[in-house]
Amino acid sequence: MELLLVLLIGVLYSAGVYLILRRSMVRLLLGIMLLGNATNLLIFLFGNITKGKPPIIKADLKVFEEIYADPVPQALILTAIVISFGLTSFAIVLLKRVYALINSDDLDDLNTPEEEDL
């Protein structure tokens, strides 16, 4: 099953890189989101992949008795997911504002005013 995850990581990274190389700002943003997801999965893979054993101690026990999923990557990813929401929302608003100003989704249009100044 890990191999499926490996495949998935590759696909997500490829898609993310391809999207951030586009001229459209929306695609750039989607690309960043995909890259974030890919990275989360990669971190997840760093820990031991375990099925059906969440890192939660049973009610009647004080420590784990058997194998359990690695909690450290999970804590890291949880933080990353929440932060990425902050990033995405800020980027979306930024994008909206840029569009309101220059009326274009084209990243190249961002350069033009500056060049005119020169």
Binding site: V6, I9, G10, Y13, V17, A38, L42, D70, P71, V72
Partner: peptide, 27 residues
Amino acid sequence: FGIILSVIAIKVLQVPTDISISKFYGD
């Protein structure tokens, strides 16, 4: 880029995970 990252992921699987930190938290 995707292929390289996949290869890295395979390499990650190759190396035994260091679980001492997780064990500390778990314990």
